[in-house]
């Protein structure tokens, strides 16, 4: 493959992706409570989400949410909108989190190569409640292996 072919291919890729983005806009990209619960149930089928509405900290940007499992010892589900799809990570007592308080909310690093740092924008009251919940859920031991 020559450099010219490579550059040509790169331009073609960009054009096709732009056409895709134009023809299929992400109208469903925002998270809703229902969407968070549905996807958490799908990714964490072993967790009983119970019949009562679970606590969900929803980012004001609508692209991140943290669901606290009804039994706090079970942990949390971190939900992010990725394009028009949803990605969930289960955070349990072996997960290592690095939580940083930022001006508008929290920045959370999950030590996960496939999940970049998650930023959740919250009102200060909710932010404090989430921070307390996450800190109370401190890991017993560091996760020894890749998630």
């Amino acid at each position: 493959m020559s450099l010219l072919q490579f550059i040509g291919s790169l331009i073609a890729v960009t054009i096709v992706a732009l056409i895709a983005a134009r023809m299929f806009p992400n109208s469903k990209s925002k998270l809703t409570r229902d969407r968070v619960i549905r996807n958490t149930a799908r990714y964490c089928p072993h967790i009983d989400l119970g019949s009562t509405a679970p606590t969900i900290f929803m980012s004001e940007t609508g692209d991140t949410a943290i669901l606290a499992f009804p039994n706090r010892n079970d942990g949390f589900a971190f939900t992010t909108a990725l394009g028009d799809r949803v990605v969930v990570r289960e955070v349990n007592d072996t997960s290592q989190l690095r939580i940083k308080k930022i001006e508008t909310g929290l920045s959370i690093d999950m030590h996960d190569f496939t999940q970049p740092t998650l930023t959740i924008i919250l009102q200060s009251k909710d932010c404090q409640a989430l921070l307390t919940a996450l800190q109370n859920h401190s890991p017993d031991q560091p996760e020894p292996a890749h998630a």
Partner: peptide, 23 residues
Amino acid sequence: ARYEGKDTMTSMLMGLGSTVAGA
């Protein structure tokens, strides 16, 4: 059929990279 811009971009860049790696 359903497409998403960034997903399509990633898929096609992976294809291009695969061709380069193959070469």
